[in-house]
Design a protein around this nucleic acid. Sequence first.
DNA 1: CTTGGAAAGTCAACAACACTGACATAAAAC
DNA 2: GTTTTATGTCAGTGTTGTTGACTTTCCAAG
Lengths: 168, 168
Amino acid sequence: MADTQTPGGQTLLFLTDEQLRKGIEAMFFAYRGFTADPDRILEEYRLGRAHHRALHFISRAPGTTVNNLLSILGVTKQSLNRVLRTLIDDGLVESRVGTRDKRERHLFLTDSGIALEQELSTAQRERMRQAYREAGPEAVQGFRTVLEAMMDPELRQHFNRGRDSGDE
Amino acid sequence: MADTQTPGGQTLLFLTDEQLRKGIEAMFFAYRGFTADPDRILEEYRLGRAHHRALHFISRAPGTTVNNLLSILGVTKQSLNRVLRTLIDDGLVESRVGTRDKRERHLFLTDSGIALEQELSTAQRERMRQAYREAGPEAVQGFRTVLEAMMDPELRQHFNRGRDSGDE
DNA sequence: CTTGGAAAGTCAACAACACTGACATAAAAC
DNA sequence: GTTTTATGTCAGTGTTGTTGACTTTCCAAG
């Protein structure tokens, strides 16, 4: 990777369009691999990727409100509602009316919801673990750093809110 | 990052579910950022992400056949056909009957196709460049390594076929 | 205490883009 | 000359996004 030090000590990167394009394609192909395993499982349950995302974030923050989920997922409430409706009808998610504010719905996974989320999550984690193993520890650190730098600032907040239990 | 050396010299990584889940979320949020800029541009042209992907790979390999594009993009011919027809009708892509094999159609960008692809590509490259700059050279290397390890083997072939002009 | 606006969620209709299945045409391969 | 391959098309379906219109609930200003 071409880089030099300026007199001031700052590292400059000279990136050709070709190198950047390669990174773009890597994102494209990798994302396909990233979603492939869960997609296969979801098919059996007649659910889609949107359901997976909802399950994931509800699992991570049980009791979260619809509104909070909306801002994380970045879709319209109508779109999310259809997804939640399916999950609730399928008995995977439970929606409890808020006690403090009755307009809010707090979302929880049911036992079967937890089971499915685990199944999906495990498949995806195994892919990730495999990739991490193959690439090595320094690569993993770089991977995470670049991904974070690629996020919109608002999404980065969401990302950093669900705090890491400190491995770095 | 926790890692140790085995007596044999192999590096082992001990990855918690939490660390892996964090990587999963990073992919999710980063991919959103990754597509955000092109999506905005595409909206003005009333095109979608599928059109962008087609433009990208035609630009990358001018004269490519429909079949080749199909295997890269991993969609059905019916799906790709709808996209290509729009692009051809909009005068962005030209389809030429093959000379050696007249069953094949070779795909090329028109001048306006090249212009749009450039516009999209530039926006996406700028995001990537920004992220690379922010993360630094070692991070970029790791980023690419992990992404490649995450791909399905078949897709990895496609990725490596469009060869890099040697920066590593 | 009432009223009016904001917030949360729901219902209906529509669009983009993926899918399957069936079929047509032309050219190449055997 | 039959089969296979490459491409295109038509019809139908599903997921996931969109907007617009609506109800219920909450809260705060009068």
